[in-house]
Design a protein around this nucleic acid. Structure first.
Length: 1130
RNA sequence: AGAGAUGUGGCCAAGAUGGUUAAGGCAUUUGACUGAUACUCAAAAGAUCGUAGGUUCGAUUCCUAUCAUCUCUACCA
């Protein structure tokens, strides 16, 4: 006796999830999916560590579904796929969370709370979210090794990162530099861009702005004494001005006018496009009433006139007098105070000439450096070079009367705020000195420190940099070898980013992160970069010996312990660690190496690949996937480190998925309340429906508009349907004791062998052909990282072909009485379809597929695998694919559909038999194809015969259309006329073309030889018939209902009503009945001719016709025909 | 501000390499099958493919411009 196929009541995907999770857990399926592939070729996957500072959202389900799908697929393809989970544990978000939780600020660390305690708190915070993430990982069916994750705060991880940093250091790729960063003087700390993007940081403020006049020195382009106009919203930076930047291609003009504050005649230079914006209000073009000669200071209108034009490039190099000569740049002052070119200059606002203060603007610093203009740095009391503003935000003593004043009034304490800000006083001074062209208030957004709520300064700070620009070309080259999904992200967003690459600022002045392993002597002249713990130990020993200390290796490599370590330089000086931490993005970009503690352990995993040696490999990744927001984040840092340290790509293929938006296309956010809870979604619809929906509703790289209704539809349509098909199968398979190869009483030809596909019915061969075509396509899609296409094809197969055609047409084969080879073939065919489908679906829908697989396989024991995820992906049986067969069934489906539409048009129900279908035949092949599915069509649409109509039967009028593809190139612009001519071809002419395969077409006086392929012929209409068309197929239906047909129709209606009554009365399927029908004239023939048929269909052993029936039910058969019926169980 | 992506019926969404009727699904309306099951199936209606130009015999598809939405990076006069 065969084992039973499990029959399931209703489909509860959430319940399936639970069952399968328990099963996987109990049987260690994930672990075994790797163990069983030991020794197989590796498929390398990197898990991007989630930053553990936030709760997982629905978009993480998308990203992880993508990752999981391809890892499962590759496992099924026989690859060994290791997936180490990882946690991004460092960085500001964690620190902020901790500070918020403890109610402290950065300054309190080391005072109110020890750094050790703080450190512990950070670790705890990370662990707190880990549980939630693990929970989601498990519930959504994401297989990743959670038992041995890499954690970026572990000493081993840090050691690997140090090793990488040291490698960069040795290659001269690390340097210390001075850059402009957001800085909060009130808090005394630099701010990361993350901090600036806290909500509420950008506030609208009103600043005093100055358009200053910079007096040009003698030159060949401008007249004596001309001024450059430059606008600033931060007048306090004007004393630090060392250059003016123009756009080389921008057109500038010289304008003659008067200074509105002093009344002095002036000539000023500004962008031509901005003259109208600048010369407003009092300024009027010179005219007869308004002349330069007649102008007097104080009068209402000030004349102006454009005198000359130049290109920005002409102005470059002109020197000008320093605007506010409080100090001179310490370095190369002779290079300062000249006009330079910069591509960031626009004519949107200001004057088209940009006041450039390299100490306080990132662009300024960049453009000045490129042009060799020095920043305004002066030597301080300690001999260090510093800007004119100190770290408290005060002007230095060099600033004379301004010395000691805060540059922004906001920095003063309550009560100390002066009446006029430095900006205002500077503006007044410039007005008096004929150096201010215009002073105005200006409203704009300006970043504020989230902690002190005071404006941020852009301020030069010491930072460590990775010389990424040195590897730029190589990064671009290697990027071209990466398979980006979608391609545009790799070429556009990422490629563009690489083209404009800047050096990577590594420094962060925080506590919770990987410390920069660089120690320096006090004068900064000697330094050491540590590349391993052994290295550090050796240096500590050396320092202990040289300096007489008793230092031990810190148990924890974080601050502050590491800061206490003092090393010694070659010539015996003390060295202190640079206090910076490194950018957390470097942490995550190091994961390919650090997750394995490379090169201190697992060295071969990476070296095998680098040296092209046989053996297991863990580098580079064959595949990674994250959100498109990681393009300049993780995707970049992986690529940069891979290129710089190993001259290799870090990943060969990358899928960057889009955002998950709400159903209206808006970004999800907690504040809008439109965020979707992944846990709720999964428990409501099941993980599989969620995954399937997210992967197939839109390409992963397009944004997904998350719509619950569509998600539910996925559940119903795909999983519900497949589940029903399975249940149908299981129910009858159990009755007939199907074991995969045999039925009760119908043994397999040979033990463990299927009936060869070629020996099965055509309809079986058809679905098998379809199935193999599907396998081929899905395999190709998965290997090309196209899950959407793969999933849609599977869904299409299940819906249109398997459930709606194959099962429907073959239902009777499963429940008919006799057991024979035909029935066995039906079971085997359906079994093979279902089993193959579980494997095709498994990568996307791991739970349901395994549930189904086990339900099938446990009964037959055909495969030894205990889970679909341990099985292998199906291989294509090319010999089973029969495209002719697929085509003719496609014809059958379409012809049936056309006939149905015709019946519908005349309101003739399918139970009413009809006599004839006419099918115009366009070629012999078509007729041959349709003939072999003729009986199928006739029974499906309940029609008696199908007649093929050959040409010229008189019924058919043919229509010719040009085939643009073949004619287009030949005819060119004669196409329009040719189209008309061809469409006007007579029946005779078309016939001639068909017979001789030649036709001379005359168009516009020219003659063209046409063959049949130049023309598309379709049959148009058939006189007197109802006709429907679907592309090349035309169908005509004889809708005349003869009396015989009518009677037969009534019989069928009668059967239907009786069946319904049986069902309503809960009779068993096998119950025999007596049928009593009230006598009626219209029904007399029906009962006479079709009585046997009726009895057979409804299992009636006798049929009584009585004059009047008291009991029973009155039912309507068709319009105007009702009858009273009764049935009784015998 | 720069870079990138997207814009096809009420909604979701196919449509590499220009060509004859622009898939399919949901929703809507109408009807139908069914003794496995099932809010299943079928039909009808609904789009000149963001807008404007251009190339071409012919453009949803190629080019240019423009608008809108979104993302990333930056915040600079």
């Amino acid at each position: 006796m065969a084992k039973k196929f499990k029959e399931h009541k209703t489909l509860d995907l959430a319940e399936v999830d639970k069952q399968m999770l328990a099963y996987w857990e109990a049987n260690q399926v994930f672990k075994r999916s790797m163990e069983e592939r030991e020794g197989a070729p590796s498929f390398v996957f990197f898990e991007g560590p989630p930053s553990a500072n936030g709760k997982p959202g629905i978009h993480h389900v998308l990203a992880r579904s993508i990752k999981d799908t391809f890892c499962r697929y590759q496992t099924m393809k026989g690859k060994l796929v290791r997936r180490k989970a990882g946690w991004d544990t460092h960085g500001l978000p964690i620190e902020l969370a901790v500070e918020k939780k403890l109610g402290i600020t950065k300054e309190d660390i080391g005072k109110k709370i020890s750094v050790d305690e703080y450190n512990q708190e950070c670790r705890k915070t990370v662990m707190m979210y880990q549980d939630l993430w693990n929970n989601l990982t498990t519930k959504m069916g994401y297989w990743v090794d959670l038992d041995e994750p890499y954690i970026t705060y572990n000493n081993n991880y840090i050691e690997s990162v140090w090793w990488l940093l040291n490698k960069l250091y040795k290659d001269n790729m690390l340097y210390k530099g001075y850059t402009i960063q957001p800085y909060s003087p009130a808090a005394g700390t630099g701010l990361s861009s993350h901090e600036l993007n806290q909500p509420g940081c950008y506030q609208e403020v009103t600043d005093t702005t100055v358009t200053a006049q910079f007096k040009a020195k003698a030159n060949d382009v401008l007249p004596e004494g001309a001024f450059f106009l430059a606008w600033t919203t931060t007048p306090w930076t004007l004393p630090s001005n060392t250059a003016l930047t123009v756009g080389a291609k921008i057109t500038y003009v010289l304008v003659r006018t008067f200074n509105q504050y002093t009344g002095e005649p002036i000539q000023v230079v500004l962008a031509k496009d901005l003259v109208k914006k600048q010369f407003t209000g009092k300024y009027k073009p010179v005219s007869e009433e308004l002349t330069f000669e007649a102008y007097e200071h104080g009068q209402k209108k000030i004349p102006y006139q454009v005198e000359q034009e130049f290109l920005g490039a002409d102005l470059v190099g002109i020197k000008y007098e320093q605007l506010l000569p409080y100090a001179q740049p310490y370095e190369t002052p002779e290079q300062a105070f000249r006009v330079i070119a910069g591509n960031f200059v626009t004519t949107e606002d200001g004057t088209g000439i940009v006041h450039t203060a390299p100490t306080f603007g990132a662009d300024d610093a960049f453009v000045a450096k490129a042009a060799g203009v020095p920043p305004m740095l002066v030597k301080n009391e300690d001999g260090d070079l510093v800007p004119l503003v100190d770290l408290q935000g005060k002007f230095r003593p060099e600033m004379g009367e301004f010395g000691g004043r805060y540059v922004k009034n906001e920095y003063y304490g309550k009560g100390d705020v002066p009446e006029k800000s430095t900006d205002v006083d500077l503006a007044i001074k410039l007005k008096i000195e004929n150096k201010a062209f215009k002073v105005e208030k200006y409203k704009h957004n300006y970043p504020h420190c989230w902690r002190t709520d005071k404006p941020v300064l852009y301020y030069p700070l010491d930072s460590w940099f990775v010389r990424a620009t040195a590897a730029k070309e190589r990064m671009i080259e290697l990027n071209k070898t990466i398979n980006w999904k979608p391609r545009s992200t790799g070429e556009g967003r990422f490629g563009g980013w690489l083209e404009n690459l800047q050096d990577w600022n590594l420094s962060r002045s925080r506590f919770w992160g990987i410390p920069l392993p660089i120690w320096r002597t006090e004068d900064g002249k000697q330094e050491k970069c540590i590349g391993s713990l052994a290295d550090l130990q050796a240096e500590i020993d050396k320092a202990n010996a040289a300096l007489g200390l008793d230092q031990k290796m810190p148990k924890d490599l974080h601050r502050p312990y590491i800061d206490d370590v003092v090393l010694v330089s070659e010539n015996g000086e003390r060295m202190q660690r640079e206090t910076d931490l490194i950018d957390v993005w470097f942490d995550s970009g190091s994961m390919p190496y650090a997750q394995w503690h490379y090169p201190f352990e697992n060295k071969e995993l990476i070296d095998n690949a680098l040296n092209n040696v046989d053996g297991e490999r863990a580098y580079p990744a064959d595949f990674i996937a994250e959100g498109v927001d990681q393009t300049r984040g993780w995707f970049y840092t992986l690529h940069a480190i891979g290129t710089m340290c190993f001259d290799s790509v870090a990943y060969k293929a990358v899928v960057s998925n889009g955002l998950v938006l709400d159903k209206n296309g808006e970004k999800m956010s907690k504040s809008k309340g439109n965020a979707v809870d992944p846990f709720a979604t999964i428990s409501k619809y099941g993980a599989d429906a969620t995954r399937w929906y997210m992967l197939t509703n839109a390409q992963p790289w397009d944004n997904l508009k998350f719509n619950e209704e569509v998600l539910d539809e996925t559940r119903r349509k795909l999983f519900g349907k497949l589940f029903n098909v399975y249940n149908f199968f299981a129910q009858y398979a159990n009755v007939d004791e199907f074991d995969g190869y045999s039925l009760k009483g119908v043994p397999a030809k040979a033990a463990g062998e299927f009936i060869p596909v070629e020996d099965r019915l055509e309809i079986d061969r058809w679905i098998m052909s379809k199935l193999n075509t599907l396998v081929k396509a899905v395999d190709a899609d998965f290997s090309n990282y196209e899950p959407t296409s793969a999933g849609r094809k599977v869904a299409e197969f299940v819906d249109s072909h398997l459930s709606n055609w194959y099962v429907r047409l073959n239902r009777h084969r499963f429940w008919k009485g006799e057991r024979d080879a035909n029935k066995l073939a039906a079971f085997q065919t359906l079994y093979q379809c279902l089993e193959t489908l579980t494997k095709l679906m498994a990568p996307i829908a791991p739970f349901f597929s395994d549930f189904l697989y086990q339900s099938l396989n446990n009964a037959t024991g055909m495969e030894k695998h205990e889970s679909v995820h341990l099985a292998f992906f199906p291989t294509v049986a090319e010999n089973v694919i029969d495209s002719d067969l697929e085509q003719r069934v496609d014809y059958a489906q379409r012809i049936c559909s056309l006939v149905h539409s015709l019946r519908r048009r005349d309101s003739i129900r399918v139970r009413q038999p009809l006599q004839k279908i006419l099918l115009p035949v366009l070629d012999a092949q078509f007729q041959k194809q349709v003939e072999s599915v003729e009986s199928l069509i006739l029974s499906e649409v309940n029609v008696k015969e199908l007649e093929y109509v050959l040409d010229a039967s008189g019924l058919l009028s043919k229509q010719a259309k040009p085939n643009f593809k073949t004619l287009g190139r030949r005819l060119g612009k004669h196409m329009k006329a040719a189209k008309a001519a061809i469409e006007n071809m007579s029946q005779q002419e078309i016939l001639q073309l068909e017979r001789t395969n030649a036709f001379k077409l005359e168009v516009d006086g020219a003659t063209f030889d046409l063959t049949q392929e130049d023309v598309i012929i379709s049959s148009d209409d058939i006189e007197g018939w109802t006709v429907a068309k679907d592309r090349e197929i035309t169908v005509a239906l004889d809708v005349n209902i003869s009396n015989d047909l009518y009677q037969e129709g009534l019989a069928r209606e009668l059967v239907n009503r009786i069946q319904t009554m049986r069902k309503d009365k809960n009779f068993e399927i096998t119950d025999r009945i007596t049928l009593i029908v009230e006598k009626q004239a219209v029904l007399q023939d029906t009962v006479q001719h079709f009585g046997d048929y009726i009895c057979k269909e409804v299992l009636a052993t006798n049929l009584e016709v009585v004059e009047a029936l008291e009991l029973g039910e009155k039912v309507e058969l068709v319009d105007d025909v009702s009858v009273r019926l009764a049935i009784e169980k015998q």
